[in-house]
Design a protein around this nucleic acid. Structure first.
Length: 302
DNA sequence: TATTTAACCTGGACGC
DNA sequence: TGCGTCCAGGTTAAAT
């Protein structure tokens, strides 16, 4: 699934292959893929046509291409959802089964394709606005609510710790909250918590400052290692812009490894349901929090 | 206000 | 073989 390392790998590919090129044609085959562009597919096509791609940027799991020329001040924003792909393909290559948007360029070179099996992802054209915490930086308005990611040099470690430790909900829920810290999904949340020897259901307010600092360090280690491996792929659902899979899945310690021995202590990895998805953890190294005790009856009352 | 849940979506795995 | 059910999970609107 595309989390930060996968999205960054795609961003890097877009920077190499698409930057500096002028858009000639845009074809939208599936309206759901542009549902977040509220003005509609026709408006998206009209505004993109003739625009020049100036760069490829990212915040968390969101990608965007700042535009110049007729669309200056705006950006083509993409989110890959769970199965979205941005592919750079020769213009004559066979269409993918779930090809939803095709963007051709004036130079006649490779085209940019948005392919998405589950259509949780999508594209939109949006205005760029100054970042709230650093106005010299601009982000699409639709991405402004997303926090910086832990690999961002302007990520605020102390602010993250304060907000996390104020929470009356689970640490894993906080890691997945993109308005608190971005780029982390289910896979890297479980891997980071395992490395930090923290159970994901521990409440934020029970975690010490030192534990938060250590957790952030592990998050950065996991994300960086996955980035070096080109991301994690379990199937053909995540690929870079050239259609190649990453290989970090070979380095996963707990995710998807129910019943296998914990690489640290040998205890079988356990799986549990959490937030409508699966959590994988070592029951020995990551002690679950004690369940909340039932409210005591007042003395003498039956 | 803070927190949690459900819906969206498709294809593969699995049981019968 | 074919059918039905479950599962994967990022985001957000709705519910609690």
């Amino acid at each position: 699934m595309p989390e930060l390392p996968e999205v960054e790998t795609v961003r890097d590919g877009l920077a190499r292959w698409v930057t500096g090129r002028r858009i000639a044609t845009v074809e939208v085959n599936h309206a759901r893929a542009v549902r977040r562009h509220l003005a509609g597919a026709q408006d998206l096509v009209a505004r993109l046509t003739g625009a020049r791609v100036e760069a490829a940027s990212r915040r968390g799991k969101y990608l965007w291409l700042p535009l110049g020329g007729s669309a200056a001040g705006s950006a083509l924003v993409a989110h890959l959802g769970m199965s979205g792909q941005l592919l750079v393909q020769p213009a004559g290559a066979a269409d993918e089964k779930h090809l939803h948007v095709r963007i051709g360029f004036e130079d006649g070179g490779p085209e940019l394709r948005f392919v998405d099996q589950r259509t949780f992802g999508g594209l939109l054209l949006d205005e760029l606005v100054p970042a709230a915490d650093r106005p010299v930086e601009s982000v699409p308005a639709s991405v402004a609510h997303i926090a910086r990611d832990p690999l961002d040099p302007f990520f605020d470690d102390a602010g993250f710790a304060v907000r996390l430790r104020r929470r009356d909900s689970a640490v894993k829920r906080a890691l997945l909250d993109q308005t608190l810290v971005s780029g982390i999904g289910n896979i890297y949340a479980d891997e980071s918590l395992w490395r930090a020897e923290l159970h994901g259901e521990r409440l934020g307010r029970t975690v010490s400052r030192a534990q938060v600092a250590a957790l952030l360090g592990h998050v950065r280690d996991v994300l960086s290692a996955a980035l070096r491996a080109g991301g994690t792929s379990f199937d053909a659902l995540y690929v870079n812009v050239n259609g190649q899979s990453g290989y970090f899945d070979r380095s996963l310690n707990v995710y998807g490894r129910e019943g296998e021995p914990c690489p640290r202590c040998g205890t079988p990895i356990r799986r549990s349901a959490f937030m409508n998805r699966s959590s994988f953890f070592c029951p020995r190294d990551q002690r679950p929090p004690r369940p909340k005790s039932a409210p005591r009856r007042a003395a003498g009352v039956h």
